[in-house]
Protein backbone atom coordinates (compact mmCIF):
# COMPACT_ATOMS: atom_id res chain seq x y z
CA UNK A 1 0.00 0.00 0.00
CA UNK A 2 2.80 2.39 1.01
CA UNK A 3 4.49 1.55 -2.30
CA UNK A 4 1.75 3.56 -4.01
CA UNK A 5 0.99 6.15 -1.34
CA UNK A 6 4.56 7.44 -0.84
CA UNK A 7 5.23 8.15 -4.56
CA UNK A 8 1.79 9.77 -4.88
CA UNK A 9 2.45 12.00 -1.87
CA UNK A 10 5.92 12.93 -3.17
CA UNK A 11 4.54 13.86 -6.58
CA UNK A 12 1.84 15.99 -4.96
CA UNK A 13 4.22 17.83 -2.60
CA UNK A 14 7.00 18.46 -5.15
CA UNK A 15 4.51 19.23 -7.93
CA UNK A 16 2.77 21.92 -5.89
CA UNK A 17 6.02 23.42 -4.52
CA UNK A 18 7.66 23.47 -7.97
CA UNK A 19 4.63 25.19 -9.50
CA UNK A 20 4.56 27.85 -6.78
CA UNK A 21 8.34 28.27 -6.91
CA UNK A 22 8.12 29.66 -10.45
CA UNK A 23 6.21 32.69 -9.15
CA UNK A 24 8.17 33.29 -5.91
CA UNK A 25 11.45 35.26 -6.29
CA UNK A 26 12.53 34.68 -2.63
CA UNK A 27 16.16 33.41 -2.07
CA UNK A 28 14.78 30.30 -0.36
CA UNK A 29 12.70 29.54 -3.43
CA UNK A 30 15.82 30.00 -5.59
CA UNK A 31 17.79 27.63 -3.37
CA UNK A 32 15.05 25.01 -3.68
CA UNK A 33 15.14 25.47 -7.47
CA UNK A 34 18.95 24.99 -7.62
CA UNK A 35 18.73 21.84 -5.49
CA UNK A 36 15.95 20.43 -7.68
CA UNK A 37 18.02 21.06 -10.83
CA UNK A 38 20.92 19.10 -9.30
CA UNK A 39 18.57 16.25 -8.40
CA UNK A 40 17.08 16.21 -11.89
CA UNK A 41 20.55 15.89 -13.45
CA UNK A 42 21.43 13.14 -10.95
CA UNK A 43 18.24 11.23 -11.72
CA UNK A 44 18.94 11.69 -15.47
CA UNK A 45 22.38 10.07 -15.00
CA UNK A 46 20.83 7.15 -13.12
CA UNK A 47 18.34 6.70 -15.99
CA UNK A 48 21.27 6.14 -18.37
CA UNK A 49 22.67 3.46 -16.03
CA UNK A 50 19.23 1.80 -15.87
CA UNK A 51 19.00 1.89 -19.68
CA UNK A 52 22.33 0.06 -19.93
CA UNK A 53 21.22 -2.63 -17.48
CA UNK A 54 17.93 -2.98 -19.35
CA UNK A 55 19.76 -3.22 -22.70
CA UNK A 56 22.08 -5.96 -21.47
CA UNK A 57 19.25 -7.92 -19.80
CA UNK A 58 17.06 -7.72 -22.90
CA UNK A 59 19.78 -9.04 -25.21
CA UNK A 60 20.95 -11.67 -22.71
CA UNK A 61 17.44 -13.16 -22.74
CA UNK A 62 17.33 -13.05 -26.55
CA UNK A 63 20.64 -14.93 -26.75
CA UNK A 64 18.72 -18.10 -25.82
CA UNK A 65 16.42 -17.80 -28.84
CA UNK A 66 18.07 -19.17 -31.94
CA UNK A 67 16.58 -16.68 -34.42
CA UNK A 68 17.62 -13.61 -32.39
CA UNK A 69 20.91 -14.89 -30.92
CA UNK A 70 23.33 -13.64 -33.66
CA UNK A 71 21.96 -10.08 -33.54
CA UNK A 72 21.94 -9.91 -29.76
CA UNK A 73 25.47 -11.33 -29.63
CA UNK A 74 26.65 -8.55 -31.98
CA UNK A 75 24.85 -5.94 -29.84
CA UNK A 76 26.43 -7.18 -26.58
CA UNK A 77 29.91 -7.60 -28.08
CA UNK A 78 29.78 -4.13 -29.67
CA UNK A 79 28.69 -2.63 -26.37
CA UNK A 80 31.50 -4.37 -24.44
CA UNK A 81 34.08 -3.47 -27.11
CA UNK A 82 33.20 0.25 -27.10
CA UNK A 83 33.14 0.33 -23.29
CA UNK A 84 36.58 -1.29 -23.07
CA UNK A 85 38.04 0.92 -25.79
CA UNK A 86 36.65 4.02 -24.07
CA UNK A 87 38.01 3.03 -20.65
CA UNK A 88 41.45 1.96 -21.88
CA UNK A 89 42.21 4.48 -24.64
CA UNK A 90 40.04 7.39 -23.58
CA UNK A 91 37.53 9.28 -25.73
CA UNK A 92 39.60 12.31 -26.80
CA UNK A 93 40.34 13.40 -30.37
CA UNK A 94 42.22 10.72 -32.30
CA UNK A 95 41.31 7.90 -29.88
CA UNK A 96 40.09 4.50 -31.10
CA UNK A 97 36.74 5.23 -29.45
CA UNK A 98 36.26 8.35 -31.57
CA UNK A 99 37.48 6.63 -34.74
CA UNK A 100 34.94 3.84 -34.17
CA UNK A 101 32.24 6.49 -33.71
CA UNK A 102 33.19 8.52 -36.81
CA UNK A 103 33.98 5.66 -39.18
CA UNK A 104 31.59 2.90 -38.07
CA UNK A 105 28.63 4.17 -36.06
CA UNK A 106 28.07 7.51 -37.81
CA UNK A 107 28.04 6.12 -41.40
CA UNK A 108 25.84 3.18 -40.33
CA UNK A 109 23.24 5.39 -38.67
CA UNK A 110 23.30 7.99 -41.46
CA UNK A 111 22.85 5.24 -44.07
CA UNK A 112 19.85 3.79 -42.26
CA UNK A 113 18.13 7.19 -42.27
CA UNK A 114 19.09 7.91 -45.89
CA UNK A 115 17.32 4.74 -47.03
CA UNK A 116 14.08 6.62 -46.38
CA UNK A 117 14.41 8.41 -49.73
CA UNK A 118 13.99 5.06 -51.51
CA UNK A 119 10.88 4.17 -49.54
CA UNK A 120 9.48 7.67 -50.10
CA UNK A 121 10.00 7.44 -53.87
CA UNK A 122 8.40 4.02 -54.04
CA UNK A 123 5.48 4.92 -51.74
CA UNK A 124 4.67 8.23 -53.48
CA UNK A 125 4.70 6.47 -56.86
CA UNK A 126 2.21 3.86 -55.67
CA UNK A 127 0.01 5.72 -53.21
CA UNK A 128 -0.05 9.45 -54.06
CA UNK A 129 -3.15 9.53 -56.30
CA UNK A 130 -5.57 12.37 -57.14
CA UNK A 131 -8.57 10.23 -56.16
CA UNK A 132 -10.68 13.04 -54.68
CA UNK A 133 -10.78 16.85 -54.41
CA UNK A 134 -8.93 16.76 -51.05
CA UNK A 135 -6.28 14.39 -52.40
CA UNK A 136 -5.78 16.65 -55.46
CA UNK A 137 -5.37 19.69 -53.21
CA UNK A 138 -2.79 17.82 -51.16
CA UNK A 139 -1.01 16.75 -54.33
CA UNK A 140 -0.78 20.31 -55.70
CA UNK A 141 0.45 21.66 -52.35
CA UNK A 142 3.03 18.90 -52.11
CA UNK A 143 4.23 19.71 -55.61
CA UNK A 144 4.72 23.40 -54.82
CA UNK A 145 6.51 22.64 -51.54
CA UNK A 146 8.71 19.93 -53.06
CA UNK A 147 9.70 22.13 -55.98
CA UNK A 148 10.39 25.17 -53.84
CA UNK A 149 12.67 23.25 -51.45
CA UNK A 150 14.93 22.29 -54.34
CA UNK A 151 17.74 24.61 -55.41
CA UNK A 152 15.89 25.30 -58.68
CA UNK A 153 12.86 26.61 -56.77
CA UNK A 154 14.75 29.72 -55.63
CA UNK A 155 15.29 30.86 -59.21
CA UNK A 156 11.69 30.59 -60.45
CA UNK A 157 9.76 33.82 -59.78
CA UNK A 158 6.86 33.42 -57.37
CA UNK A 159 7.85 29.96 -56.10
CA UNK A 160 9.65 31.07 -52.89
CA UNK A 161 6.70 33.38 -52.12
CA UNK A 162 4.22 30.52 -52.69
CA UNK A 163 6.20 28.39 -50.23
CA UNK A 164 6.26 31.21 -47.67
CA UNK A 165 2.48 31.59 -47.98
CA UNK A 166 1.78 27.86 -47.64
CA UNK A 167 4.05 27.64 -44.59
CA UNK A 168 2.95 30.91 -42.99
CA UNK A 169 -0.82 30.63 -43.48
CA UNK A 170 -2.45 27.16 -43.83
CA UNK A 171 0.49 25.29 -42.27
CA UNK A 172 0.89 27.70 -39.38
CA UNK A 173 -2.86 27.78 -38.65
CA UNK A 174 -2.97 23.99 -38.30
CA UNK A 175 0.31 23.82 -36.35
CA UNK A 176 -0.89 26.48 -33.91
CA UNK A 177 -4.14 24.60 -33.37
CA UNK A 178 -2.24 21.39 -32.70
CA UNK A 179 0.26 23.16 -30.41
CA UNK A 180 -2.49 24.80 -28.33
CA UNK A 181 -4.33 21.47 -28.06
CA UNK A 182 -1.17 19.61 -27.02
CA UNK A 183 -0.27 22.30 -24.46
CA UNK A 184 -3.71 22.27 -22.86
CA UNK A 185 -3.56 18.46 -22.82
CA UNK A 186 -0.13 18.57 -21.14
CA UNK A 187 -1.38 20.98 -18.46
CA UNK A 188 -4.43 18.80 -17.82
CA UNK A 189 -2.32 15.61 -17.63
CA UNK A 190 0.23 17.28 -15.33
CA UNK A 191 -2.56 18.42 -13.00
CA UNK A 192 -4.06 14.94 -13.01
CA UNK A 193 -0.69 13.42 -12.10
CA UNK A 194 0.01 15.99 -9.34
CA UNK A 195 -3.46 15.50 -7.85
CA UNK A 196 -3.18 11.71 -8.07
CA UNK A 197 -6.07 11.23 -10.52
CA UNK A 198 -3.81 9.81 -13.21
CA UNK A 199 -1.85 6.86 -11.79
CA UNK A 200 -0.68 4.92 -14.84
CA UNK A 201 2.90 6.09 -14.27
CA UNK A 202 2.99 3.94 -11.11
CA UNK A 203 2.73 0.83 -13.31
CA UNK A 204 0.59 -2.23 -12.75
Amino acid sequence: MLQRKIPLAMVFVFGVISTLQYFVPHPLSQQYYDTMLKWMIGVGSMAIFLALVSFLRHHYVRLRKKEHAPYSAVAILSFLFMTLVGFIGGMGPGSVFQKMFYYVQAPLQATMFSLLSYYMASASYRAFRAKSFEATLLLITAFIVMFSVTTFGNYVPGVPKALEWIMAVPNMASKRGIAIGVSLGSIATSLKIILGVERNWLGG
Binding site: S117, M120, A121, S124, Y125, R126, F128, R129, A130, L139, A142, F143, M146, F147, V149, T150, T151, F152
Partner: peptide
Protein backbone atom coordinates in the same frame (compact mmCIF):
# COMPACT_ATOMS: atom_id res chain seq x y z
CA UNK B 1 24.12 17.15 -51.11
CA UNK B 2 21.49 19.73 -51.98
CA UNK B 3 22.07 19.18 -55.68
CA UNK B 4 21.57 15.44 -55.22
CA UNK B 5 18.55 16.21 -53.04
CA UNK B 6 17.04 18.45 -55.74
CA UNK B 7 17.40 15.74 -58.40
CA UNK B 8 15.85 13.17 -56.03
CA UNK B 9 12.90 15.54 -55.43
CA UNK B 10 12.40 15.95 -59.17
CA UNK B 11 12.43 12.21 -59.68
CA UNK B 12 9.87 11.72 -56.91
CA UNK B 13 7.66 14.38 -58.54
CA UNK B 14 8.05 12.62 -61.87
CA UNK B 15 7.09 9.29 -60.27
CA UNK B 16 3.94 10.86 -58.83
CA UNK B 17 2.95 12.29 -62.25
CA UNK B 18 3.60 8.97 -64.03
CA UNK B 19 1.74 7.06 -61.31
CA UNK B 20 -1.28 9.35 -61.66
CA UNK B 21 -1.35 9.16 -65.47
CA UNK B 22 -1.34 5.37 -65.20
CA UNK B 23 -4.07 5.50 -62.55
Amino acid sequence: GMEANSIAHFLIMLFIVVGNIGY
